[in-house]
Design a protein around this nucleic acid. Structure first.
Lengths: 204, 204
DNA sequence: ACCTGAACACCGTTCAAGT
DNA sequence: ACCTGAACACCGTTCAAGT
């Protein structure tokens, strides 16, 4: 029943789903195209009917990750409408880190090297921008309401926050943190971003 | 002549050097043990006499990278003895980013996943700590001289700076920056760290 | 249109054998 | 002690062939 579906145009979807499932228990680096196909119950060469190569499959998986990430970030500030920009930016960054910690191998695929070259995967790029834009909009609002320090471009402050969230996430995934567990690391993130949040305030 | 040396105990060194050389032109992910051995002119299985596995070779390469990084960082503040902690921390962070941009594939190996598990490579750990300690010492000095804002632990502020430098480096390597070249990205780093440096200042 | 099978050119790792 | 050769169990990718 399910098998026949793959013959009706769902194989692409099935391959992406199988990859997402495998990433819950397997390291991104050791995940093979052949194993994904095996899991779906199809010859591994069938994947080439739907993806140009292994990287194209991973790009789709990464894109899905950024869409989920953006969704998580959106939810994190939904109840903070009345709060100021610093509070909201902190919440967005925390949601970012929380996603990376909750889905470490998926995050690794999202940050996989050379997924971004030559603008090969525009869908992925737009998904990245969707998440990035949430930070950017918040910065813009903060600049307009004069709660954030002046900046030449809103992108500058946005990059500071994004860099911090991304940097912290990867350090946790690399095990380069003396916390007892990734869950505890998330709480520690509040301490680590604190000086940045402070520095985003209007000075004068 | 050179070949005979490998039979006299230098093969380990030769394999590390060949890897470093290859990383100047080749992507870290596609670098194979067999290719390194080929370059040295030795059967690839000979490497197992000196390294438990491929990861152990990469760990040595990564260790060497962190030692170089620490050296670069040290040099960057050597002429800034009289400057305050913010200036010196900014210089250290900039040296960090400069290293990553100058040696992108080497940096990728240094940040390779699972090099750190179970404290398998203590030499690598100590090299990482050597670089980390440069930031930590600077923070400690800044706290003593009351030029930095109070913190529960000096490690907290250190992590903020390290996270920013590491995060920015990886974003550049991933191509997730709209700069025209990596070299330009280094200049942009000053803008991105700025709010953090500001937030490190003593508030009251 | 979509999938299979065989084949190609690779990998990392192991192990008996050579010097 | 140190290195080689053959072998094992895999990869990603291609292409002719099947339905």
């Amino acid at each position: 029943v399910a098998k026949r579906a793959y013959h009706h145009g769902d194989l692409k979807r099935a391959l992406v789903d199988a990859t997402l499932l495998l990433l819950k228990t397997e390291a991104a680096e050791s995940l093979t195209l052949r194993e994904v196909a095996r899991r779906v119950g199809v010859d591994h060469t069938a994947a080439y009917r739907h993806f140009e190569d292994k990287r194209a499959l991973f790009a789709d998986v990464a894109e899905e990750g950024f869409r989920q990430l953006a969704e998580d970030m959106r939810k994190s500030v939904a109840k903070l409408q009345k709060k100021n920009a610093q509070v909201r930016l902190r919440a967005l960054a925390r949601a970012y880190v929380a996603f990376a910690i909750a889905h470490p191998e998926h995050y690794r695929v999202m940050m996989g090297p050379r997924l971004n070259v030559e603008g090969r995967f525009p869908g992925l790029e737009s998904a990245v921008m969707e998440a990035y834009a949430l930070l950017l909009d918040e910065v813009k609002r903060g600049l307009l309401s004069k709660t954030l320090r002046r900046a030449e471009k809103p992108q500058d402050l946005t990059m500071s926050v994004w860099t911090m969230a991304h940097g912290f996430s990867t350090l946790v995934l690399l095990g380069r943190l003396r916390t007892k567990s990734p869950a505890i690391a998330l709480r520690y993130f509040d301490t680590v971003v604190d000086p940045l949040i402070e520095g985003l305030k209007k000075t004068s």
